[in-house]
Amino acid sequence: MDSLFGNRRISMAALTDFSQLTTSTKNHLRNVYTCLTLTMLSASAGAFLHLKGGFIQGGLLSTLVAIGLMVWLAATSHTKENQTKRVGILAAFGGAMGLGLGPVLDFAIQINPQIIVTAFIATSIIFVCFSVSALYAQRRSYLYLGGFLGSALTIMLVTSILNMFFKSFALFQFHLYAGVAIFCAFVLYDTQLIVERHMNGDNDYIWHSVDLFLDFINIFRRLIIILGLNENKNKKKN
Rank of each mutant, 00 (worst) to 15 (best):
M1C: 05
D2N: 12
F5C: 05
N7G: 12
S11Y: 08
M12K: 11
A13S: 15
A13T: 15
A13D: 14
A14Y: 11
D17Y: 15
T23I: 07
K26D: 01
N27A: 09
N27R: 13
N27P: 01
H28G: 04
R30Q: 03
T34H: 02
C35A: 14
L36Q: 10
M40Y: 04
A45C: 12
G46M: 13
G46P: 07
G46R: 05
A47D: 11
K52G: 07
F55P: 09
Q57P: 06
G58L: 13
G59E: 12
S77M: 07
T79R: 14
T84K: 15
V87K: 15
A96L: 06
L101G: 02
L101H: 03
L101A: 09
G102C: 04
G102D: 03
P103E: 09
D106S: 14
F107C: 12
N112L: 06
P113W: 11
T118W: 03
T118D: 12
F120P: 00
F127G: 00
V128G: 03
C129L: 15
A134R: 10
L135N: 00
Y136W: 11
A137C: 06
R139I: 02
S141I: 06
Y144G: 08
L145M: 13
G146Y: 03
G147M: 11
F148E: 02
G150C: 15
G150F: 15
V158R: 03
I161K: 08
I161M: 14
N163Y: 10
N163M: 13
F165H: 07
S168V: 10
F169S: 08
A170W: 10
Q173E: 06
Q173A: 02
F174I: 06
H175L: 05
L176Q: 04
A178Y: 14
G179F: 01
I182H: 00
I182G: 00
F183K: 10
A185R: 00
L188F: 12
D190G: 08
T191I: 08
Q192V: 05
L193C: 00
I194K: 00
I194S: 14
V195T: 13
R197W: 07
R197A: 13
M199K: 14
D202Q: 09
D202W: 05
N203S: 12
D204F: 05
Y205V: 04
I206P: 00
S209D: 04
V210A: 08
D211N: 10
D215R: 09
D215M: 08
F216C: 00
I217F: 10
F220S: 01
L223G: 00
I225E: 00
I226P: 03
L227P: 02
G228H: 01
G228D: 02
L229G: 02
E231G: 02
K236H: 13
